[in-house]
Design a protein around this nucleic acid. Structure first.
Lengths: 204, 204
DNA sequence: CGATTTTTTGATTGCTGTCAATTTGGGTGG
DNA sequence: CCACCCAAATTGACAGCAATCAAAAAATCG
């Protein structure tokens, strides 16, 4: 498997894939963070996911990417030729099973996000986002509830279906109520994880 | 494969699966329509998909269903024991490959829906919905742009992240502007498919 | 340290939700 | 077959949450 892999280093903003273009590469993230998103003709953007170490990019049922992908920060990936990757998957059922498992995990996450986008309030969306990031952050120092947010407020907004102003306001409210503490713009500490989890699902 | 399958007939409202319960059955729809959805504690509902003939229900990465599933109308399905189905998939790589392909298709659809829920206006959502239903309806008489909507307005609203009132108002506007014609509550004809497709992506 | 971008905060608007009243339609029994 | 009933859908009036527009503050970068 490593025989067809190539290590690539990316800087923030670097493009990995463009929606609707034919699939030439498949990537596996080894460090850093990537945003995947879709655009409407007038420029409105929906970020459909943030990917971190271990996640795959570019697997699709069709011949073209279903979304665009860009590095958020300095990122390293393993790059594969899509054709070689597909051939390898055909030969190795265990790889195919792993991909299926991963795809189903992503599908579950996508359904959670649909619930968020379709039915949650701004407050619940921001709380849900922080809860998710708390559980997914790959390098979380043991014990303390530190959350790193490598993405900008604009990206958070486009992920949550909100504006940057609304995201900012909700974060401010969370700080004032003592649920979170802002170490810096991109580093928070969750002071009341249970309160946050309640808020994420609509408790008073 | 048919050796572990059992044919089951369902009426509208019958339950196929409940979110968070352990996965005992896997289904393949042979006719009819099914809604899959998630609920918030206070009862808000997000329908994450409508499934028709050929679609699978119950495949998940975890041990529990990620969503609830109910028949919308009279529906027939093939029912499999999940354990037997998994064993079969392990033995037959071609089945696993087919499932992966289907999962990736669903993932693409989920991302389209996230764009809709996060960034589209009520008008664009309803237009997008009709365009999708036009392309997915399994029994579409050749040529004419007839669309059958077996689900209620309430279900459409919960699928699009809107209220029934907003859905109703947008459909009325589409009728008045001559883009669609209502044959009955559950049967429309698309008079201007190109206008509808433009509206779905935000054209004036 | 200054320039520029990003974020935060404030004032106001507006799209969609809520609440309420009709109207329509599907189903049932006479 | 038709009249009735009840649920579903439509229509209307108004309200509210988040968006928009605008300005100040903070952070990043050279």
């Amino acid at each position: 498997m490593d025989s067809i892999a190539e290590r690539v280093t990316l800087a923030g903003g670097d493009v990995l894939a463009n929606e609707a273009e034919s699939v030439v590469n498949v990537f596996n993230i080894t460090s850093g963070a990537v945003r995947i998103y879709k655009l409407l003709p007038d420029g409105r953007r929906q970020i459909t996911g943030f990917l971190f170490a271990g996640d795959f990019i570019g697997l699709t049922a069709g011949a073209t990417y279903a979304f665009s992908a860009e590095a958020i920060e300095d990122t390293t990936v393993c790059r594969f030729r899509a054709s070689e990757y597909r051939a390898l998957a055909r030969e190795r059922p265990s790889l195919e099973a792993a991909l299926l498992s991963r795809a189903m995990h992503e599908l579950t996450a996508a359904q959670d996000q649909m619930l968020l986008l379709g039915r949650k309030t701004a407050r619940e969306r921001v709380a849900s986002f922080l809860v998710t990031m708390l559980s997914r952050d790959p390098l979380r120092p043991a014990g303390d509830n530190a959350v790193r947010l490598p993405m900008t407020r604009s990206e958070i907004a486009d992920y949550l279906g909100l504006t940057i102003e609304t995201v900012s306001r909700e974060l401010t409210k969370l700080k004032i109520s003592g649920v979170i503490h802002a170490v810096s713009l991109h580093d928070l500490r969750i002071e009341r994880p249970d309160r946050l989890k309640d808020m994420a699902n609509g408790a008073s």
